[in-house]
Design a protein around this nucleic acid. Structure first.
Lengths: 158, 158
DNA sequence: ATAACTGCAAACTGTTTGCAAGCGA
DNA sequence: TCGCTTGCAAACAGTTTGCAGTTAT
């Protein structure tokens, strides 16, 4: 069940904090719940907005201080699509073998399986004498709406 | 010859400017020469520094105003590796079918051929109903020096 | 108790922009 | 001449950080 995977992610992150002797504060709990109760990809700003709906005391600083912990724990994946802000993926622990495609207009993000690509990436790294640490395939594309109507924006294009 | 390809890129960019009724100013000429006389990947800041060695009157603003023209002309490729600044690739028109691998430590960038990956990318786009516009494969990796000695930095690790 | 954590506001970094002066076509 | 370009400095956006007070353990 999807639901259980999410609850498990929350538990894993709390373990991660405990292992580092970090405290489970109210604000952190709210942020954790917000992150793992969604399957959408989000930005720092969106996360702040969502978290504040649950607890208005959550501050921007705490969000920014918690995000590195989330990525360090490997439960959330940080992604850079060339936009001035980063995107975060809470589905990462579910299925680490996926990559993303973003619509150049509405910023809709679609996940796709990428076993084959990953395999090639590792081959390439070996050939060049590098050890690949992380990969991020950024595909910028036109989504259906954009192709049909010439435009699509964040509000109307789901 | 590599040399000729570079001179041709300069000419092409000047044509591009002329076609848009933009002027060939001294500062632009210096920037163009700087960009296409190197094969290295660079940041806006590096480009400013190099250009100023040739002509100290080149300003940061002009560099930032010229870079979008260079990418729009498709003679230079913009890349984002999750660092807070962007990298630019002056080798793009030479061989558009390559991607990049960056060392997580010294930021050394290595190019590699990626025909196979590109093919897969297009397949994926088609399956998902997207038209792929641009792709950027970010591979972060450990270079040889980093693996051997545990560290490498921008100055010492060529 | 005490060390980690918080919100706030100021600082920072890379990039963009308004403006008055400069210069290419 | 005309209007595109320039350098400067101020503005911007996203993110980070110092600090004094707060809170989990």
């Amino acid at each position: 069940m999807q639901r259980e995977v999410r609850e498990q992610a929350k538990r894993k992150f709390i373990e991660f904090l405990e292992k580092k002797d970090l405290r489970i504060t109210n604000q952190r709990r709210v942020i954790i719940d917000t992150v793992f109760d969604t399957e959408e990809h989000f930005t720092a700003d969106q996360l702040l907005e969502w978290a504040r709906k649950r607890d208005s005391s959550v501050s921007r600083a705490t969000v920014y201080r918690t995000l590195p912990l989330l990525t360090e724990s490997n439960l959330v994946h940080e992604m850079d699509f060339g936009k001035p802000y980063k995107f975060y993926d809470p589905n990462y622990s579910d299925s680490p073998n996926h990559n993303h495609l973003i619509c150049e207009d509405c910023e809709k993000i679609v996940e796709f399986d990428s076993d084959r690509i990953e395999q090639i990436e590792n081959e390439i790294g070996q050939k060049l004498g590098f050890t690949v640490k992380s990969q991020n395939l950024q595909l910028t594309a036109a989504c259906d709406t954009l192709k049909r109507s010439g435009a699509c924006d964040k509000k109307t294009c789901s």
